[in-house]
Design a binder for these strands. Sequence first.
DNA 1: TTTT
DNA 2: TTTT
Lengths: 147, 147, 147, 147
Amino acid sequence: MAAGTINKVILIGNLGDDIKMHYFDDQNCVGRFPIATSESYTNKQSGEKVTSTDWHNIVVRNGLAKVCEKYLSKGDKVYVEGKLKNRQWEQDGVKRYSTEIHVNEMTMLSTKKNTDSSTPIAPQQDQKPSAPAPKTVTPEEDDDLPF
Amino acid sequence: MAAGTINKVILIGNLGDDIKMHYFDDQNCVGRFPIATSESYTNKQSGEKVTSTDWHNIVVRNGLAKVCEKYLSKGDKVYVEGKLKNRQWEQDGVKRYSTEIHVNEMTMLSTKKNTDSSTPIAPQQDQKPSAPAPKTVTPEEDDDLPF
Amino acid sequence: MAAGTINKVILIGNLGDDIKMHYFDDQNCVGRFPIATSESYTNKQSGEKVTSTDWHNIVVRNGLAKVCEKYLSKGDKVYVEGKLKNRQWEQDGVKRYSTEIHVNEMTMLSTKKNTDSSTPIAPQQDQKPSAPAPKTVTPEEDDDLPF
Amino acid sequence: MAAGTINKVILIGNLGDDIKMHYFDDQNCVGRFPIATSESYTNKQSGEKVTSTDWHNIVVRNGLAKVCEKYLSKGDKVYVEGKLKNRQWEQDGVKRYSTEIHVNEMTMLSTKKNTDSSTPIAPQQDQKPSAPAPKTVTPEEDDDLPF
DNA sequence: TTTT
DNA sequence: TTTT
């Protein structure tokens, strides 16, 4: 239970790389991948168009990590929702800080992955390439999935 | 215009310190302050209660920065909404990274600041100490404020 | 699992009335209460200040409903998050429509209810009247509560 | 300025119909269209899969309405963000109520509209049918658009 | 490192 | 009325 505080991040962006999975055992795992968001605006002084991109470190766990591993790959567009988490560690005697987004909800908005038509949850690529069947997946629902 | 991406952060938390203002000139300024969010949960293995706190680097600009300077102080609870922004710089030859939240909407949920009753925007402390009249301030509306 | 869609409502507002509880049995119940949000702006033509208030029909279930019943009352300020749900029914032969917000997360931002200090979840009114210790409650966590 | 309240709706869904535009004059207009969100879950008693769909009345104004008219059509998937607004009117002596979502930010997540390649903002359908170039449009930015 |  |  949170102490009367709210910590919420909502992103729609593209995967900059495939997910990297790390298994602790066959039940517990964590997956990490970067998501890019970008915005472009016109600089008021110079009149030139500027595009800036921000990279976000996404962390998913267990069932949701397995779903991401199965359906997402580099370049795909996704909706994610989660919490900002600070992580610190020491590297070569220097304290390092990193900000991660611990995601608990993910919806695919596009997918490039060739999905096996025998798995009913899979987006059916053959029917309608421009609108692959996306699904929203949350941790509670992972248990229903065939992993 | 953003390239079909969304970058949104919503926080409710407490100021860990007073705002630090930096003025570029009398029109342009930036203010920074930390916000803490926390959550506590029961560790499933040990059964002990764990509380974890995350600190967020809030950045506000111009009119909204001046409103924050005027009405917020250490310990106050606020709602903020903004975007995640990565910042990098070099310090002693080492590349440093920091994640900031560039806030464009702020609502006071409590205030300790002794506010002058002659400024109508100020929360009226005398009437209802447990629920000071908060106001939502967004950048577009700054022009209406008496600065 | 949702079909690649997102339905999310976030409100901070005040209860217009106490919660109305309806029990199906001792496990299952539903609670309803109205929340007001308001905004005021200056009419560009007339220059006069206009305040408009919107009322939202909040619906909570089971453990979260019991928490709301216990800690919230008319006038309190809360943060809620949920989904928009359309409901239709017939009344006197006329089809009626209503929009509800089915809430799955609630955080108290103020409370007037006199809370018993023996219940540790209760905001501790004696310490800090202007900022009662609020708690975020989500359905998954209800099981930990003493109901 | 809002009175310390927050009223925020975030939807990703599909247009159930084309936008209906109403022009007050050549500067001021309003557009309306329905968006569907759906969720499916397994009924715990019966074990059968249930899908429920909610329809949302989207309202956009002026520049954003024109962008929606130009780029969106029935079936398209969009991200929208806005505020819940109650509307009431009398019809045949009976008071009617309706809930609308007054949208101030829209991002196209798919488009079926055949867009003219001479307009640079248009999604370029020929290159990559499965991922049309989406754009986020907010009211403040409308002035940059060629209307 | 993505995407447009 | 959409979408899967």
